[in-house]
Design a protein around this nucleic acid. Structure first.
Length: 784
DNA sequence: CAGTGAGCGAGCTTCCGCTTGACTT
């Protein structure tokens, strides 16, 4: 029997460490947290100093009892979860759940999985740091309180099943805000002037005028002045430039680069990285640290020197910049730097591994040395100068291996292709050059870019919101809740003017380009925008971009023993809970309603809002029960149109699509094309139109045939459901008695005596409800 | 799924942060 039981968080880590420690140690994994707050609303006693009630989830029970048994048999238990807030809490939960005794428990920590680091940790054990545990409890309790008090407000005021939380709600807010910036952006046009010159040996180069002209006339004037002008090199400047490699990957930078260079979604990146980690190819992939262990620095140095030469190596230590980093692990790096590529895994794993290898290796390589040449070209008839620039790589350094990709910049800037850094031909100061051609092209300022998954992660990390383990899940959550969609959207055609000076002649032309095409970008939905506005209105503090940063400061104070965790929570919770109560009581329901205007033909009011089934347009006003008048007509929003930006014209377009086929049994028969193909709609029932029939050609006869066919099928299905579900109970609800029949709830009509209802009556009532049971069925009484 | 467009029932939904797992096609 092993004398020592050592527990870490990850099984892959356990395996590695077991190899370092020999037979006196048995090394096990807790698989992350082993306990969590109880499910439901009663896990925290807010009136009793936030007393928490924890439980071991079902899927962890077997693991915990196994660990408990091993702990009992061992002479010493070593708690080796990560050295951060969550890791300390895991150790404490283990201590509690495994019934450990203080005398035979030691807490150890290490930041890297190397043999010396582990051995050193074992020589310097400590006790559980309860201040750190309290800080984690404060974090956990606050998140639960925020999430489980805000979400029900949304259920009541917006829609059931929605959610809000400290992290996800800010993520949605970023996307909603960005969308609005894009939509209100006014693009400005200006003329950019680029010329192609040639030197005496007829070698050509490009030069650009540093200023742009807003007016076409000014651009034309400049070109005109150049017709008979002489050009010469006014000045030549040569300056050295240096470029440094980026730090090795953290979770967030890995997600960004894998997105830019390989086109992976953040969840794909994490899945692939997990595989690489499990097979021992890379270090841990959920980290916020850019630090490399000394053994890793040595190994990288050796590899660089042997593969590229001594002059390519440069020892670098990077400092973590991001807010709230806890640095329990190393940066993401290959476990063995001599492995440049892997061949025993599939292509996506191979590509990600190579990216990680290059980035880590490059981080330990020399800077690149560049010689930049800038030539100013003078125009005899004007005082402005054109600038030509070229770069020559003097020493490639880390560029031999890797160059980080640029993000599309999110700030508004002028839309142009970057001045290309080609090599300039030989030039001397004062030398005359010939103009081959000159072009003035209308260019437009660009709105800020919409977020991609990866650029959203970057932003969240900058704000200190979320953790490496939650970036990918958060992005899934906001999409699963329907707040955000990831989509491609087509751009719009735009015309621009260009004026060309060539061979002494000026010609102008109007060209066309597509602008604003988006690929895999995050867009808010209507529900996302409405929920966001609701939260911003009623819970400004919680969705403030600095909320997390502020509470993190307090968690740090708790961790350092400067603050009582319950005091912190009291201060937060009291006003928050009052806001929740007030909002529950007083806030209006939020449906994003907007008045678009009046119908151009009949003056009826046109409005848009979110309904039970999503955003829709309504033409005309609802008619009260029993009153005469034309009923309103409705159409759902499609094609990425949003309530807050749809125009009257776009709204009217939506009504052209469904085709009226005729009338059958007093109900309209319509044909339309839905997301899954063409269908006929009759009396609230949908019948797919077979592929060989064009929905525009469908006749009333054909539609009736389809309807009858479908009806028989539905009846068969209904009967089957009812015979399989022969239980019915009568229950007393808040508004009187009702029948529960399978998943149906049926109101008992007033003319029926509750006592005298028979099973046949139940069947009849259910059939009258005339609808197949569905989850969440609500309106069986409506028909009456 | 699609179109629809407030009427009451019961009981459900929900947070963030650690970590991997697998009834079978």
């Amino acid at each position: 029997m092993a004398k020592n039981l050592l527990i870490v968080e990850s099984p892959a880590k356990a395996k590695t460490i077991e190899g370092y420690l020999g037979k006196d140690f048995i090394v096990k994994s807790s698989f992350g947290h082993i306990r969590d707050l109880k499910k439901g609303d009663n896990a925290i006693e807010t009136e009793n100093n936030f007393k928490q009630h924890y439980e071991i989830p079902a899927d962890k029970k077997a693991l915990v009892s196994e660990l408990k048994k091993l702990a009992k048999e061992a002479e010493m238990v070593w708690l080796a979860s990560d050295e951060d807030r969550e890791g300390e809490a895991i150790s404490w939960h283990l201590f509690e759940s495994l019934d450990l005794k203080e005398a035979k428990t030691k807490r150890i920590v290490f930041h890297e999985i190397t043999k010396p680091a582990i051995l050193k940790a074992i020589e310097t054990p400590r006790k559980i740091n309860y201040d750190l545990v309290y800080a984690q409890q404060a974090r956990r309790v606050l998140d639960r309180l925020v999430g489980f008090e805000l979400s029900p407000v949304l259920w009541r005021k917006v829609k059931p099943s929605l959610s809000a939380g400290r992290v996800q709600s800010v993520a949605v807010r970023l996307i909603v805000d960005r969308e609005r910036e894009v939509n209100k952006f006014d693009s400005e046009a200006a003329y950019r002037i680029v010329a192609i010159f040639a030197n005496d040996k007829n070698q050509t180069f490009k030069a650009e005028l540093s200023q742009r002209y807003e007016k076409q006339a000014d651009a034309e004037k400049f070109l005109n002045d150049c017709i008979n002008a002489n050009f010469k090199v006014n000045s030549l400047e040569v300056k050295p430039l240096k470029r440094n490699p980026a730090a090795p990957f953290t979770t967030s930078t890995l997600q960004q680069e894998a997105s830019r260079k390989l086109g992976y979604s953040v969840s794909r990146t994490m899945q692939v990285a997990q595989k690489l980690y499990e097979t021992g190819k890379i270090t841990y992939m959920r980290t916020d640290s850019v630090n490399l262990s000394d053994t890793a620095l040595d190994a990288a140095a050796t590899e660089i020197k042997s593969a590229y030469g001594n002059q390519y190596h440069f020892l670098r230590k990077f400092k973590t910049k991001s807010a709230g980093a806890q640095e329990a692990h190393e940066a993401i790096r290959p476990t063995d730097f001599s492995v440049h590529s892997i061949s025993d895994m599939d292509a996506s794993e191979k590509r990600l591994y190579e990216l990680i290898w290059k980035r880590a290796i490059a981080s330990q390589m020399s800077e690149a040395q560049i010689e930049k040449t800038i030539a100013k070209i003078g125009v005899s008839t004007r005082k402005e100068e054109l600038t030509a620039s070229g770069e020559v790589l003097k020493f490639d350094g880390f560029l031999k291996v890797y160059l980080e990709s640029d993000d599309e910049e999110s700030d508004a800037h002028l839309d142009d292709s970057k001045t290309d850094n080609a090599i300039l031909p030989p030039l001397t100061t004062g030398q005359a050059v010939n103009l081959n051609e000159m072009n003035a092209t209308e260019r437009f300022s660009r709105p800020p870019s919409r977020y991609t998954e990866a650029s959203l992660v970057k932003k969240l990390e900058e704000l200190g919101i979320g953790r490496p383990s939650t970036y990918a899940p958060t992005i899934s959550t906001v999409q699963n809740r329907g707040y955000v969609v990831k989509e491609d959207r087509e751009g719009k055609q735009r015309n621009y003017k260009t004026i060309l000076l060539k061979a002494g002649k000026i010609t102008s032309n109007t060209l066309s380009e597509v602008t604003g095409t988006e690929k895999s970008k995050l867009f808010p939905t209507d529900i996302g925008a409405v929920v966001n506005d609701f939260l911003v209105e009623h819970f400004k503090d919680i969705v403030d971009f600095n909320f997390t940063a502020n509470v993190e400061k307090e968690f740090d104070e708790i961790a350092n023993g400067l603050k009582e965790w319950t005091d912190m929570l009291h201060t937060f919770y009291k006003p928050f809970h009052i806001d929740v109560d007030n909002t529950m009581k007083n806030a209006e329901r939020a449906n994003g309603e907007r008045f678009l205007g009046e119908h151009p033909d009949n003056g009826k009011k046109i409005t848009v809002r979110i309904g039970k089934f999503g955003p829709f347009v309504q033409i005309g006003e609802a008619v009260a029960e029993g009153e005469e008048g034309e009923k309103p007509i409705y159409a759902s929003l499609r094609n990425g149109l949003m309530i807050e930006s749809i125009t009257l014209e776009q709204a009217l377009e939506l009504f052209k699509l469904p085709k009226m086929v005729g009338e059958f049994e007093g109900s309209e028969v319509k044909a339309n094309i839905g997301r899954f193909g063409p269908y006929v709609l009759h009396d609230k029932k949908f019948i797919s139109i077979p592929k060989d029939i064009d929905p525009l050609d469908i006749t009333l006869e054909k539609a009736i045939e389809l309807i009858t066919e479908k009806r028989q099928k539905d009846i068969d299905k209904l009967i089957k459901t009812f015979t399989e579900n022969p239980e019915a109970t009568i229950e007393n609800g808040r508004w009187g008695p009702f029948i529960r029949f399978g998943k149906l709830n049926i109101k008992i009509p007033k003319d029926k005596e509750v006592e005298s209802i028979t099973y046949d009556d139940v069947l009849a009532l259910a059939a009258e409800a005339d609808k197949l049971p569905k989850k969440g069925v609500k309106k069986f009484t409506k028909k009456k």
